[in-house]
Amino acid sequence: MQIPHPLLGLRDASEFVYLGDASLLQRPEVPEGADMGDSVLLDAFHEYLHLRDNPAGEHRELWFHEQGDRSWLVVTRNTTTHEITDCVLARDLVSR
């Protein structure tokens, strides 16, 4: 596979490390002074960390360019064809 890095162009997938679903970007907010053992918080983090969609088709996922510029990327890849339709810097996506 080849990943179209937004800064570096087409790079071989062997330079990257895969993490998983890009929903990991949406870490739940923990309010100031919250009780860390609060059940609503626990449920929110449980859902954030463990419950993932497993689509046959387009999937947004996190890749780390470990053998490159160390940027975390959000890659949109079709899980049935491996076609990659989008690739952006994760920090750009979160900052937006």
Partner: peptide, 18 residues
Amino acid sequence: AVGVFRHMEFCRQCLWPG
């Protein structure tokens, strides 16, 4: 060493880029 650095970069770029 490698995994912790990767994790810290994840926190920096993906969770708290500001």
